[in-house]
Design a protein around this nucleic acid. Sequence first.
DNA 1: CGCAAATTTGAACGTAGTCAACAAGTGTGG
DNA 2: CCACACTTGTTGACTACGTTCAAATTTGCG
Lengths: 244, 244
Amino acid sequence: MSASCFADVLGGLIDLTGSETAALEKLEERQRNLRRGAVLQRERERCNELYVLRKGLMMSYVLLDDGSRQILRFLFPGDLIGVSSLIYSEAPEALCALTDCVVAPFDRSLLSRIFSDHPRLAAMIFVYCQIERVTLTDRLAALGRTSAKARIAALLLDLRNRLRGTDRSVTNMFPLGLTQEEIGDATGLTSVHVNRMFRQLAEEKMISRESGRVTLVDEAALMQAANYVNRYEGLDLSWLPPAR
Amino acid sequence: MSASCFADVLGGLIDLTGSETAALEKLEERQRNLRRGAVLQRERERCNELYVLRKGLMMSYVLLDDGSRQILRFLFPGDLIGVSSLIYSEAPEALCALTDCVVAPFDRSLLSRIFSDHPRLAAMIFVYCQIERVTLTDRLAALGRTSAKARIAALLLDLRNRLRGTDRSVTNMFPLGLTQEEIGDATGLTSVHVNRMFRQLAEEKMISRESGRVTLVDEAALMQAANYVNRYEGLDLSWLPPAR
DNA sequence: CGCAAATTTGAACGTAGTCAACAAGTGTGG
DNA sequence: CCACACTTGTTGACTACGTTCAAATTTGCG
């Protein structure tokens, strides 16, 4: 495994200098293993640390008064997590491991050091969070204005693209790794309806399924159904400050 | 009007130094007037500028293939807008004036200067965008997991709180300033259903309406119905880097 | 193998959408 | 100042998408 998963992600966007890479490696000096199902952070709990996810799949979510859950985001290796909790005295969202995971916890003072010592790196973290923001607005639009089928299609495309981000061997067949209830909680549907939409997408020959693996059979049709945009492309970083 | 509306917002969170305030004032040196309905930025258009909203009410939104619209956020004086477009070569969202407005456009190189010269200010802009991110996740949870009535209640509470942010005289009665169609596009509902929910909230004595003004009659009941959290409170900024 | 979790399916229900008509404002130009 | 056009708000009847509840079946795991 790389010395810094997060550096790998940012390094995919710009060329990092040696001192920048060193600063990012500091974030991942410590490691912590999480069992599947482990809760790394609860809502409304105090939290002074951030994390880089190094291995495995996690999710962030909120619980509502009536007990229902909204999954905000699935988290992949290289993701910087717990950023929103940094700025509040109580965490606004929970973090939970969907598979066995490895995370690297680091103190928030390290982030503040990056702002002081590595302006370009700070700007890149800012960019990284803005990408995340835009994917959230895409999902907001999906929940507000698209059909159940479109939301499932968008989720499948996004999962595949994000998996491919850490594993280039992923093509159009991949292990889903999520229960239909989790997919429902991410898309604002019930698990029952998620199941029906899977069936429908399969009947329409857009996907196929076999033992926990999904194949995107007709990717163009899925893209159309979902009006999906890959937000990790089309960036313009020409305005970044000089590296230090 | 203040020399920098954005400095007023950040200044409400921490004490700014003289040089920090001066850097923020640079962002608002130019001004541009917008008529009601004017589109400041279109989706998929190139954009090299950011803006501070100095006066009026704006919104950001996306249009979907079928012509439907999802309003992402209502924008108030002091808001930094167009940030997400900064990082892409094509704007991911549109910006439009809901009332006559005054905005201050500034080049993205000025932002990059702040990262280089004012680390604490850069961190504060980061914090400001994270607050925005959390409010987006609140809305995501609302669209995914709450009833129409709850979404309208949450929107009313949020509007009132944000209006109060720029005008302390606002109490529990305020001019709505939005059409029911706009409220529908923000909450993922149709204008017809928004109307029915208003009626229902009024029948249940949670709100009252008279000629474009809304009164939050039973704020506690609204908060309960909405499970609303004010994300401009409860911040912890003790980790910020030193000011320069 | 046996148990618990997850998936699948059916039937009935309900929330919110659609379509349509009308009322009430709002602003404009004659 | 009024007439007209246009936007916005309001209401009813009907429709449909997605939920709920329940039960059967499959899957994965200890």
